[in-house]
Nucleic acid binder design. Structure first.
Lengths: 100, 100
DNA sequence: AGCATGTGCTTGATATACTTAGCATATGAA
DNA sequence: TTCATATGCTAAGTATATCAAGCACATGCT
């Protein structure tokens, strides 16, 4: 695929693409990386990593990172499902605390 | 917390912090956002969103906003609870699809 | 009052992402 | 061969993130 074909497809100038290929750009912005991720099967996350940006997975707080992966496992859910899950979580915890 | 205290803590100049507060900077780099996310309880993902960057979840077409708020409402949960919630979600959906 | 220090802010200055214009070579058609 | 067009690349320009220095005001101490 030619640079100009990519330019037309994702809206990044061929000049810039060339500079990226020859490592003349140190950190392409996430906006650009996102466009490229659209085109190739490469994941946006991976590209962020390659560019040297911290990715959301890098967050140190255990709660944060585990929640992030949890959301990933969840996929897309409706508002109604959110509410039901929250209710169920409350139920689980009340059941558990009664045992203490 | 003073700007200079934050500067000392996360290594971002107080001058820059001031400009961020007054919206003079349009898109602080993810690197800066990550440092700030370290300091505050704010999630890195959320900050990326606020700055107008696409977040990794956007790639799957997941509505990040709803998921972000869901994570906020969830708080921190254990691995075991994660599994139970996933099971329950599967149960909810199977119940629903049976009605169709 | 007078001085030291903390605080927010502005002002250059620098680095660098990103674009537009254009050059040089290749490729293919007449 | 000659012309048209595709392709990779470079150079110059613009925008903007980021910093270091310093200003203006406040607070508190002697």
């Amino acid at each position: 695929m030619s640079l100009r074909a990519v330019e037309k497809e994702v809206g990044i100038s061929n000049a810039y693409l060339s500079q990226i290929e020859s490592d003349k750009i140190k950190q392409p912005s996430p906006n650009m990386l996102f466009k490229l991720a659209e085109l190739y099967d490469n994941s946006y996350n991976e590209l962020l990593n390659l560019a040297g940006y911290p990715t959301p997975d890098d967050i140190d707080g255990i709660e944060e990172s585990s929640n992030a992966s949890f959301v990933a496992r969840l996929g897309s859910i409706t508002d109604e499902e959110q509410n039901e899950l929250l209710d169920y979580l409350a139920f689980l915890r009340s059941k558990r605390s009664r045992k203490d």
